[in-house]
């Protein structure tokens, strides 16, 4: 079983996000990036399948700042092969998916598992776009994967805790919502060692030829109009104010 896991870095939302001077994108100069949490789940699920009964796991990413570190971290966690795709700039997920499809097409694979979404995929989720560029089936919002021969049983989550079970034949692309286990942690020392031991293969993005797109006119912080009345003071003061509120509203 060969599993390919496309991963990417996204802005760490714990940090303050600033908008660039054109007002159309984030100011990326000081942006702190981290592995997209859904990709982390996809990688974890692939590595668990490797742990369970053997799978060969390839982590693949588009070239960007710090991406080598993310790939080496994947190797430190257990990925067998690292691939970097050069030649894509900009934030179009369609272009990213096309570049990934070009790179993956020639590889030997049974499954592609990647995050169900990312915090910045404005023009759609990579998993489904990639599947359609590869012309193979796809299921997204996946929370369970079981393999039996050439068949994969997947659990797809709906709203309200309802889950649907599907059976697909390989090759298939899965958009992973959550792995069975919390994604594993890897110490920095191990990543450093991987950066010495592991190698990153580099491939070219090839023909992107994606013409259907959209143009951003404005990025701004949402103002929902309402907004909370902020209760100031120490924790004690704030707790007292909340007690007053709860009494007022007849809750306590």
């Amino acid at each position: 079983m060969n599993i390919i896991v496309p991963i990417k870095q996204v802005p760490d939302l714990v940090e303050e996000l600033e908008i660039n001077s054109a007002g159309t994108d984030l100011d990326r100069e000081w942006l702190k990036m981290k592995l997209s949490e859904f990709d982390d789940h996809a990688l974890e699920e692939a590595l668990l399948m490797k742990d369970d009964g053997g799978a060969n796991v390839t982590a693949i990413a588009l070239a960007s700042d710090d991406i080598d570190k993310a790939l080496f971290a994947a190797a430190a966690k257990g990925a067998d092969r690292l691939v970097k795709v050069n030649g894509v700039s900009g934030s179009s997920t369609h272009e990213a998916a096309k570049a990934m499809a070009n790179a993956i097409q020639g590889m030997d694979y049974d499954m592609v598992m990647t995050g169900v979404q990312a915090v910045d995929d404005r023009d759609g989720q990579l998993a489904v776009l990639l599947a359609h560029y590869l012309n193979i089936p796809h299921v997204s919002v996946v929370t369970g994967v079981t393999v039996a021969g050439d068949n994969v049983t997947v659990l797809k989550e709906y709203g309200g805790g309802m889950v649907a079970e599907f059976e697909a034949s390989t090759p298939v692309v899965l958009g992973i919502q959550a792995a069975r286990e919390t994604p594993r942690y890897v110490p920095v020392a191990k990543v450093r060692r991987a950066s010495k031991d592991a190698t990153i293969e580099e491939v070219d993005a090839g023909d992107l030829g994606v013409d259907a797109g959209s143009t951003v006119s404005k990025m701004y912080k949402p103002d929902t109009g309402g907004g909370a009345e902020m209760l100031e003071g120490s924790a004690e003061d704030q707790a007292s104010k909340i007690m007053e509120l709860l009494t007022q509203k007849g809750i306590k």
Partner: peptide, 23 residues
């Protein structure tokens, strides 16, 4: 932008070569 819609929107976007704006 639901579990079902997330499958459909992207797939049709690629197959029909239509722009897709999500979320």
């Amino acid at each position: 932008n639901t579990s079902m819609g997330m499958d459909i929107a992207g797939g049709v976007s690629v197959d029909q070569n239509m722009p897709f704006i999500a979320y």
